[in-house]
Design a protein around this nucleic acid. Sequence first.
DNA 1: ACCAATGTTTCTATTGACAGAAACAATTTT
DNA 2: AAAATTGTTTCTGTCAATAGAAACATTGGT
Lengths: 87, 87
Amino acid sequence: MSEINEISEILSKIKNTEDIVLFLNELFTGSELEDLSKRWRILKMLNAGETQRDIAKELGVGLCKVTRGAKVLKDNNAITRKYLRRK
Amino acid sequence: MSEINEISEILSKIKNTEDIVLFLNELFTGSELEDLSKRWRILKMLNAGETQRDIAKELGVGLCKVTRGAKVLKDNNAITRKYLRRK
DNA sequence: ACCAATGTTTCTATTGACAGAAACAATTTT
DNA sequence: AAAATTGTTTCTGTCAATAGAAACATTGGT
């Protein structure tokens, strides 16, 4: 089984949020988690209908990064879409 | 709430492994997932008692990366330890 | 059809993770 | 204790993501 599948299986079995936070902190560096945070904010802001330029300016990121998020959301079957809606 | 907490909460609520795999593929690039895979393999090999030099050689990674994994496992309360044992 | 706003791509420079090698430290073996 | 093995840190160069700016493409309003 691939490592990603294995990690995903572990994540699916951890029930409490705190343990997942700890898990992520052991697998990623601080700056990687900051990056991940920004990607997530980008997805949320895109989902809320903000323009890419506004998002880039507000988060202090490049347009290329925002466009990358937009590409993910273009797929109507994107799993991310599903969880952005449930807020 | 911080984005990492939010992401962790979402992960804790996804029950099937496949959806988590999809989720990770939307949030990370291919090379980042390869990196994550290597980090996980390093943790497994360290946990199995292999020497850092053997691991570095076998995975084609630097010693610094292996040592980073070793630092995580030094903490006996590391959440990672818990899930490495359950295999 | 035109134009303004927005989306997307491209370019150069920057940054963080890290490979590879070497040095240094700690531990184990004898 | 000396030597060998293993763990850790440091150094230089490399690579992928991407910031910032500009150019190009698309789209909606008029």
